[in-house]
Simulated scan of single mutants.
Amino acid sequence: YLEDGRLELSNNRAERSIKPFVMGRKNWLFANTPAGAQSSAVIYSLIETAKENELDPYRYLLWVLQSAPVLSQADEFWAEKLLPTNAPQECHVPQ
């Protein structure tokens, strides 16, 4: 960060974004197995990524979960098509 002025000096923003997950993890029974923890991490990563890219998390998740099965059968590079930059306009938060 000393040589590149675009980098932030702290990671407070990232820590604040995961705080709700850390505070509530004891309440979520589905994360009591490795598979449950993996699923939880995937969903929370998608939600936080949507927020950072100014997308409505619910609409973005709905779009990803509806599009992924169809794309995964039709295209080898299906995951790249589900990135936030490729999200349809209805996933964006109105300005």
Rank of each mutant, 00 (worst) to 15 (best):
L2D: 13
D4C: 08
D4V: 13
G5W: 02
G5D: 10
G5P: 09
R6S: 11
L7Y: 09
L7I: 15
E8K: 12
S10E: 10
R13Y: 15
S17W: 04
I18D: 02
K19F: 13
K19P: 00
P20K: 05
P20G: 00
F21V: 11
F21E: 03
V22M: 10
V22L: 14
M23T: 07
M23C: 01
R25S: 03
N27A: 13
N27P: 00
F30Y: 03
F30L: 08
Q38W: 00
S40L: 15
A41M: 08
V42G: 00
Y44F: 10
L46G: 03
L46Q: 12
I47P: 01
T49W: 00
A50F: 05
K51Q: 12
E52T: 12
E52P: 00
N53C: 15
E54C: 12
L55E: 13
L55S: 09
P57T: 06
R59G: 02
Y60L: 04
Y60M: 04
L61F: 04
L62V: 05
W63L: 07
W63C: 03
V64I: 15
L65K: 00
L65R: 04
S67T: 11
A68L: 12
A68M: 09
V70F: 06
L71V: 03
S72D: 01
A74Y: 00
D75W: 01
E76D: 10
F77Q: 14
W78A: 09
W78H: 07
A79S: 13
E80G: 01
E80W: 02
L83H: 06
P84Q: 11
T85A: 08
N86K: 12
N86I: 01
A87N: 09
E90T: 05
E90L: 08
C91L: 07
C91G: 11
H92S: 13
V93F: 00
